[in-house]
Structures are given as C-alpha cells and as structure tokens.
C-alpha cells in the first residue's frame, strides 16, 4: 500500500518513480542498521529512529535521479530503475558480509532476525489478521490527500502536474518542486521498506522482504489513476488477493497460480478495461456517401510504418 502511495506522489507531478523497489530496500537497510546498532533501546524510541532512518534513506536513494531530472533533464524512469539493481547488489553485500546471518545455510541473502522489540503489533478483526502497515498506509493516504487538496504545496503540484509552462508562469520554481516531490516519493518508498520489515512475517533485511512490492505499487497507483485514497483501496484488494494466494498454497491448492497468475490476470483486465473505457461502442452502419463525407481526414505519412 505504501509503495503504491510512493508511486502516486510522483505521478501527481507527471513523473515516474520506477525505483520504489530500490528505495524500499534502502529504507529497510537503514532501519536494520539502526536496529542492530542500538538494540539496547526499548521498542518505541528504537522504532521511531528506524522509521526516520528509513524515510531518509529512501529520499537519499532518490536524490541523484531527482537532481538529474530537474537540472539535466535526464529521464527519472531510467535512473530510478537502474538504481534498483544497485540497491540489490548493496543488499547482497551486507547480507553476505557485515550482517551475515551465521545460522543461515546455503545462498539465502538475509540478516539475522531483528531485535524482538522492533516488531510492530498486529490486531485481528473478525478473525482476519491485520498488520500494522495497513494503518500506516491509511494514515499516510489521508495525510497526502489533505496536503494535496488543501495546501499551497498541493496547489503548486497540481498546477505543474497539469502544465509545466503554467507552473513557470505562475512563478513556481518548477525544478525545486520536482526535486521536493521526487524526494518525498523516495521517502515514502523507504517508509514502505521499514513497515514491511517490522510489520510483516519476514523480520529481517533480506531479498525475500519484497515480492516485487515496489513494482506492484506502481501498477496499483496507475490503476487508481494516481489518487491517494484510490491507491490505498486498490492496494487492499491486490494485497488480499496475494494473501489469499498464500493461504491457498498452504492448503496445497495451485500456489503460484493464486499468487501471481490471479494478480496478473486482474491487473491485465483492469488495465485493458481502463484503455477500452475511452472508446464507445457503436453499431456499424452500412457505408454511405454521407458517412464518407463525415469521416475525419486520414493521418499523414508520419504514422506509416517503415519499409527499411
């Protein structure tokens, strides 16, 4: 859910943060480092420091793409995507080197479990286990919606998102705003990383922390049309499907089918539906003279395909 919100923040400005996955892991890295270094602290202060560190790390991981986009006009899509691989290599270094889990066998890239006091509580409503991450996501979604609709910053983001020229005309410092918003997107992705690590089943800094959560977040945000509350709702649905897939696996019913097949299927249907909703069904009439007269002019040769 939080990864979806991270992507949605950038979308508001017409930018694409494809590096949510990488910022997610960097957030988890910073939080894990803080937890290992200060494991003498009690839960609340330690968790606070971990969350701050994670958002900071996510933002720092976005710094280069943000500055490159704003001042050198280098596509943030490429830079953020490529930094994902760097983040994974970074993870491989720490989990095989300084933070290697001495008890792990084989090639699992994971640190030892985090100190027990860093686990976020879970509650249970009507027999369904609810992770703390959902509350963080909902609060963040409401907070972002408020900022976006009511604040000066939100007004500037809407304006520049609709037209960069209009933003410059209104006296908005477009580059600075772009950097701010992209960093916020990275920070939210870092927040997602620490939330998953402290609130989920895998309580360590590890490759298995994310099952493509970062990429899924982008898809969810796009499906929700970039709306924060829509992203939150959409994330609940997709999250439920993935969780259901896991349960099915435990019951030994088609595992990967549920996890990925079903999710993918729904995403594809939704995306195609989105595209098709722009068209209107019309009944084909016999071609007559009037119809030809009304037909729009055909495109010029710029759209023709190549023979070379």
């Amino acid at each position: 859910m939080v990864t979806g919100l991270a992507a949605a923040i950038a979308i508001k400005l017409g930018a694409w943060n494809v590096g949510v996955e990488g910022q997610f892991f960097m957030g988890a890295w910073a939080a894990a480092g803080i937890a290992f270094a200060l494991d003498g602290l009690s839960g609340p202060p330690l968790l606070t420091l971990m969350f701050m560190g994670a958002t900071g790390a996510g933002a720092v991981w976005m710094l280069i793409p943000a500055l490159a986009r704003a001042y050198l006009n280098i596509s943030e899509i490429l830079t953020t995507l490529m930094l994902n691989f760097v983040a994974m290599a970074f993870l491989a270094y720490w989990t095989t080197g300084p933070w290697r889990d001495p008890r792990s066998q084989g090639a699992v890239l994971a640190t030892p479990k985090l100190p027990e006091q860093t686990r976020l509580p879970t509650t249970s409503i009507a027999g369904v286990e609810i992770g703390f991450g959902i509350f963080i996501g909902l609060v963040l979604a409401i907070l972002l919606t408020t900022i976006f609709r009511k604040s000066v910053l939100g007004y500037m983001v809407t304006t520049v998102g609709a037209s960069e020229r209009a933003g410059a005309y209104a006296g908005i410092k477009v580059r600075r705003l772009l950097v701010t918003v992209l960093l916020a997107s990275g920070a939210a992705a870092g927040l997602a990383g620490v939330t998953h690590m402290t609130g989920g089943a895998i309580n360590r800094y590890s490759t298995s922390l994310s099952s493509n959560t970062g990429y899924m977040g982008i898809a969810v945000a796009v499906l929700a049309g970039g709306s924060f509350l829509g992203t939150a709702a959409m994330a609940l649905v997709v999250g439920a499907i993935v969780a259901a897939g896991n349960s099915l696996r435990i019951l030994d019913v088609g595992s990967e089918l549920g996890r990925f097949g079903l999710t993918g299927f729904i995403l594809v249907i939704a995306a195609v539906g989105e595209g098709l909703s722009r068209y209107r069904l019309v009944r084909r009439r016999p071609i007559d003279a009037a119809n030809i007269a009304d037909s729009p002019p055909t495109a010029t040769n710029s759209t023709e395909d190549t023979n070379t």
């Binding site: 304006t159 020229r165 005309y169």
Partner: peptide
C-alpha cells in the same frame, strides 16, 4: 490555454 490558464483545472 497552456501557460496563462491551467485548462484542466
């Protein structure tokens, strides 16, 4: 329509 006004807003 693209700089004086934000036409979608």
């Amino acid at each position: 329509y693209s700089s004086g006004l934000v036409s979608s807003e």
